[in-house]
Design a protein around this nucleic acid. Structure first.
Lengths: 167, 167
DNA sequence: TGGGGATTGATACAGTATAACATATCACCT
DNA sequence: AGGTGATATGTTATACTGTATCAATCCCCA
């Protein structure tokens, strides 16, 4: 298994591609990819970084007119439901999905696993699997019905572990 | 792999055992298991439930004299560092460790996996393993240095999935 | 054209967590 | 005994994260 997120790449191209895919996916699913939602998605795509809702709020507010928290949270909820972004529980933050091309939006067997750099907050996303997430067996044995899964690792990304890696 | 937490058991005995083990472990590690810390630990042991810091704060405050948030968070930090409790990221909450007897405090290969009931907040803890957490391969492939791991599933426990299981 | 669903705006507030500084306690040394 | 440093606790204020509520708007379509 490999993880997307730490390699160098054509960033503006990658953003354009993601936007285009998002447009078409929302259109197919009869979801409204409105300007507000698109704007929030663009902001999250900018850095391949996990961003807090209030970080996004601040950037949105740069345009002069004031923006309130519910605006951001509504857009984030929409993007989460559409499978375009993920919530990073460990950070109470959000990051754009990097595996859009690989699976369908509602693909339940897609169990994303995240590698989170505690220094630069870059997030890499690996394609996990139910059979290897360490939960399925335990749940089956005890009669627990799993609905959602969280698999995250925090540490240092390749770039940050080169230089100063003091906590 | 099995999970502890959903079975019936001798609860007051289990609390006493846990407290005794905590005492001796802290003593061995030269950590101070002070009354404030012990009290917070007792509260978490009461229910085998994930509890928010402010839930604990409220119970602590019942004793008349006022208690402030930092008091609770400091106790929680200590108990986390001592390996006596876990933080449940999905809920921003805390739960007593149920596998005290099975491993040492600083055992890094111990990767706890949690089954969280969204209805009653009961938490079961399964003994995970690095080799099956779906992260090790991806991290190794990309040069990421993992420091901490989060593996959590949310759903319905056996008891709650019997009755009304509407979200 | 007007009714209903989805979206957005705006205000207020709830819940989670920490910064900063003061005080207390205790072990240890001289 | 008195000084000193490490650890723990008390107190106040504030930062960060998220939601409830109600009003206004937009847009599709019968």
């Amino acid at each position: 298994m490999t993880a997307l997120g730490f390699e160098a790449h054509d960033h503006s191209g990658c953003i354009d591609d993601a936007l285009e895919r998002a447009e078409s996916r929302c259109h197919d699913a009869k979801l409204q990819f409105t300007p507000a939602r698109r704007r929030v998605y663009e902001i999250l795509l900018q850095g391949h970084q996990a961003m807090g809702a209030y970080d996004i709020l601040e950037i949105l507010g740069k345009g002069g007119h004031s923006v309130q928290p519910p605006t951001v949270y509504r857009a984030l909820d929409f993007l989460l439901r559409a499978g375009l972004i993920h919530r990073i529980e460990r950070l109470n933050a959000y990051a754009a999905c990097m595996l859009l091309a690989d699976h369908d939006a509602g693909d339940a067997s897609h169990v994303p696993a995240f590698l989170i750099c505690r220094q630069c907050r870059t997030v890499a996303e690996a394609e996990g699997d139910r059979s290897t997430d360490g939960l399925t067996d335990a749940a089956a044995a005890s009669g627990f019905v799993v609905e959602t899964r969280v698999v995250e690792a925090e540490g240092l990304c390749p770039a940050c572990s080169e230089g100063g890696d003091r906590p």
